[in-house]
Design a protein around this nucleic acid. Sequence first.
DNA 1: CCGTTAATTAGCCAATATGTTAATTATAGA
DNA 2: TCTATAATTAACATATTGGCTAATTAACGG
Lengths: 108, 108
Amino acid sequence: MSDLPRIFAALSDPTRLAIVERLMRDGELPVATLREESEISAPAISRHLNVLIRTGLVRKRARAQQRLYSVVPETIRAVSSWTLDHRTFWEASLDRLEAELHKEMSRK
Amino acid sequence: MSDLPRIFAALSDPTRLAIVERLMRDGELPVATLREESEISAPAISRHLNVLIRTGLVRKRARAQQRLYSVVPETIRAVSSWTLDHRTFWEASLDRLEAELHKEMSRK
DNA sequence: CCGTTAATTAGCCAATATGTTAATTATAGA
DNA sequence: TCTATAATTAACATATTGGCTAATTAACGG
């Protein structure tokens, strides 16, 4: 159901990542507001939003002429789940790093 | 230091994602082994591995004619950290989902 | 109903990504 | 030293991405 490569692809564009982060922080926002923090044209933003819609990262809602966008938490959670699935891997390395730090400390 | 968009871009290709997952599961592996599970040519794999190297997701080590690749845990942890930075966001939705489930249960 | 605001769609172009086959580099081992 | 093995680099074709301007759609407000 959650197509991880497509989600990663959607998040791989700096403009789109910024949009997603902004929406996670501030909740639902209209296109005009999202446009403020990047230099690019309205049509470009529109297409980026479309990519995010297609991958299920955001949803759209109409209010008058505005279109309000917000993040779909479940899709973000898919990314989180992926990292947790491999937690044992990067956690092990954390332990090693920590051990290294302790060694360093006791040496001084 | 950790360029998230580039990391996401590297993971957005199914072949590369499969390589990273395989390496996380099995540890250090030579190119020939990684090649087994995908249909594409050796040069293609080689270039994918190069992308992973450049983004800091894997490292390479020589042993005879072989080149052994392994995942760099710190870089994977960068992805994990990103999701954790926004945990409050998707966690809130988890709570809501859970609440919904409880409502559902008590109704029956 | 007409003008303004908000956003999207259409059409176009340049840059990047991904795959292929052929050629090259490097090492092992008889 | 010659051959086989392992991987990479070179050269090329094609598809996708991402940007722009101009045109279009939709809704509000006088």
